[in-house]
């Protein structure tokens, strides 16, 4: 039997960007806040808190999810990838490079989530059609770019990754 008001802290052990982390947290903490506050990685953004805008997209075991709708406590034993985890030892990741080359960034707020959704797509589908790209990023809202250069960038990154 529990007593109201005595809520336990749980210990969770997870990997964020291939680095091991341990946190003692209450169950009601969102993954988004764990990443931004406790882990201090502010690249992941808060946009709407209801899973509509995709600005908070991270990968959990390679799968893109809205971190504003994930409880931190569920990520025990899992591997999280945030935008900070893509540039390995300072070397820019292919999709990031493609976004740069194609000018696929304006205000930049949707960019981290957008790049992670793109990564998840290309990791599973190295040769996507334009329609498949649109479906993969439909959950990442952008108000600045009109998506056109973002799609070009993903196509370009896919070609490079295929070695073309």
């Amino acid at each position: 039997m529990f007593t109201l008001g005595e809520f336990m802290k749980h210990l969770i052990k997870l990997k964020i960007n291939e680095k091991n982390y341990e946190f003692r947290i209450e169950p009601n903490i969102l993954l988004l806040d764990l990443i931004r506050e406790q882990a201090g990685l502010t690249g992941t953004k808060r946009g709407c808190d209801t899973g509509e805008c995709g600005a908070c997209t991270v990968l959990i075991n390679g799968v893109p999810v809205n971190s504003c709708l994930v409880l931190a406590i569920e990520t025990d034993g899992k591997e999280i990838t945030t935008i900070e985890g893509l540039s390995n030892n300072g070397k820019i990741y292919s999709i990031q490079e493609a976004f740069v080359e194609e000018g696929a960034v304006q205000c930049g707020f949707c960019t981290p989530g957008m790049i992670l959704s793109s990564k998840a797509l290309l990791d599973n589908n190295p040769n996507p059609t334009e329609e498949e790209i649109k479906k993969a990023i439909a959950g990442n809202l952008c108000r600045c770019t009109g998506y056109s250069k973002i799609i070009k960038a993903i196509m370009s990154a896919a070609r490079k990754m295929r070695g073309e």
Partner: peptide, 9 residues
Amino acid sequence: VGSLQTRNR
């Protein structure tokens, strides 16, 4: 249903 991120969960 929803967006890709939602469907993944």
